[in-house]
């Protein structure tokens, strides 16, 4: 059971701050489940610019979409900001 936290635009799209998700082994399975649940808008945001952290670390530095999700893991999804 992982805790998924949504921030900014992802919170708008899902209408949730966070939720627990069961029965997924890795980020790929989690994202598929969330895309099925929240549709194209979620998929687009994810593809275009969302950052995914597992326990505060970007999945790009773990095993990207193959990053395994364990019990008690916290997955945070949010868009980046790059301007100043």
């Amino acid at each position: 059971m992982a805790l998924v936290k949504y921030f900014a635009t992802l919170r708008e799209i899902t209408g949730k701050r966070e939720e627990t998700v069961r029965g997924v082994k890795n980020i790929k399975e989690l994202m598929q489940l969330l895309i099925n649940r929240y549709g194209d808008k979620f998929a687009k945001e994810l593809r275009d610019r969302a950052m995914i952290l597992v326990n505060g670390k970007n999945i790009l530095h773990i095993r990207d979409m193959d990053t395994e999700i364990e019990e008690e893991d916290v997955v945070s999804i949010f868009p980046p900001a790059g301007g100043g």
Binding site: A8, M51, G56, K57, N58, H61, P79, G83
Partner: peptide, 25 residues
């Protein structure tokens, strides 16, 4: 610190903390 649209983010980085590359894409 960074801003974009209606959103912005801040964190304090030093030798003891996670670095930009740990969380930023």
């Amino acid at each position: 610190g960074a801003v974009e649209g209606y959103m912005g983010m801040v964190t304090f980085i030093d030798k003891t903390t996670k670095k930009l590359q740990d969380f930023f894409t």
